[in-house]
Amino acid sequence: MMALRTAATGMAAQDLNVDVISNNIANMNTVGYKKQRAEFEDLLYQDIQRPGSQSSDTGTIVPTGIQVGAGVKTGAVYRIDTSTTPTQTGNQYDLAINGTGYFQILLPTGETAYTRAGNFSVNATGQLVTVDGYQVQPAITIPQGTTSVNISQTGLVQASVAGATTPTTVGQLTLATFFNDAGLEATGNNMFMQTAASGTPTLGDPGANGIGSVTQGYIESSNVDPVSEITALIVAQRAYEMNSKVVTSADQMLSTTNAMKQ
């Protein structure tokens, strides 16, 4: 009886589904986090009678064969890149992207990572860095004695230095866009790396054709919707239970078979 193994694949799939949902709920308050979803596909089929096989010498064929499936497997864990409303923080180094685009971050390994989390700060030498201390690209250095920093919607960074009447331009932020965001590889710490599936990044100033604009004093909250996650959790748990009912039914049938011979 295949049903026992088929149900086991179903239970394993729902197990993974719960893992993904729990990660979403755990990251409900992570800045710039994008919710994920597990996607499944059916396993191989056993041909008991192939559709299209001949059923007589005169050439009649079986219209619908009998194919019994062997269960389910995980196809992909998907990231859902819907945008959220930015949350006000008032911090002058907090940046939210309104629309598509990623900030570029220089990793200690020399590679460039991409992030939607704009909760930046300034390090000891005045460089704009992430919470992990990695430099934001293109490098922006805030001069000594700066009283306030203004970052425009188009990413122009201006510093008001004590004693000067006009603010000084200290840099221009650029954003990277990808034509398939879902193909980016998540590496933790809110960072993404480019892959063959994401395509190469297109760099541009915020607000320019199709690229999102930057809002200072706001951060992007995660797009996890607690209600839909809890609903998904209930559905996953019920699906798990239903698969276990198949195991029970198969077991009952086998024990019925055993009971026939007393």
Binding site: M1, M2, T9, G10, Q14, V72, N243, V246
Partner: peptide, 20 residues
């Protein structure tokens, strides 16, 4: 009936499969 159970098991296992 055993085969029907196999088919039902596959349906339930794929209740969350895209396009199934």
């Amino acid at each position: 009936l055993q085969r029907e159970l196999d088919v039902t098991a596959n349906n339930i296992a794929n209740s969350d499969t895209t396009g199934f």
